[in-house]
Nucleic acid binder design. Structure first.
Lengths: 130, 130
DNA sequence: CAGGATCCGAGTCGATACTG
DNA sequence: CAGTATCGACTCGGATCCTG
């Protein structure tokens, strides 16, 4: 077995990372973690998302085996989206990330303020490295 | 205390999520988790990154209080980048994500294959939802 | 060595209109 | 209801050139 190297652009691990990078994908995962939803339900839930991005993102999530798409032949047609078991494991991992965000957002905000103010006071460190 | 809602575009939690979305930021965090590095060291480590993206991403990471920037008045000048304690906690969380990727990348790849082949065989589910 | 400044093409995203 | 198709605005990021 070769160990995956996210620094190699060809590494599939990188592709997964890129998926996480998709903000819409993350929001969809979080939504579906709570319960199965229909297309327009998701649309209302996420609010800012355009219908194009929603259908597009759902499609790629389905392709990755993270989301189930179930069509019911009602009139008009009904489509239910839910997490697959695989998708559930991912959404839990992502949850750890949102937890970090909620916990440390204050520190980040403070750091930003300090940085933005202190632009006039450039620390002149002078000690040589070695 | 209001609880942060990542579905609200104005929520700071969302901003953190967006940072994670940045592939370069993630790669830099991972790199610096291993050890302190200089600018061109990082450049070589990450390979595909352009110098523009590197300096740009480093700057925002520094602003967020995730990365330390230390300048030494040598000739020519030396700059060392390292993780802050805060940055270290984040990189560990991110690590959980890369772990998921390495673990499940196979399942994702299989799902993609199935999806790409089965495009001619659209499952006609007919059972009404409720 | 560590960056800043500029130019510019490719891709992304939203808005809009239409369909089964 | 659950999408697809098209188009244009905008952004991102790479390439290139330059500096202290």
């Amino acid at each position: 077995m070769h160990r995956p190297d996210p620094f190699d652009a060809k590494c599939p691990t990188r592709q997964v990372l890129d998926r996480i990078g998709d903000r819409w994908a993350v929001l969809i995962l979080i939504s579906l973690e709570q319960r199965t939803m229909r297309f327009n339900e998701l649309r209302r839930r996420i609010e800012a998302i355009s219908q194009k991005m929603l259908s597009q993102t759902l499609k790629s999530l389905e392709r990755d085996g993270l989301v189930n798409r179930k069509v019911f032949a009602t009139v008009p047609v009904t489509v239910e989206y839910s997490l697959t078991p695989l998708g559930r494991t991912l959404s839990q991992t992502v949850h750890a990330l949102t937890l970090w965000a909620e916990t440390h957002i204050g520190e980040v905000a403070q750091a930003q303020q300090r940085y933005d103010q202190g632009e006039a006071a450039p620390e002149t460190a002078t000690t040589p490295p070695r």
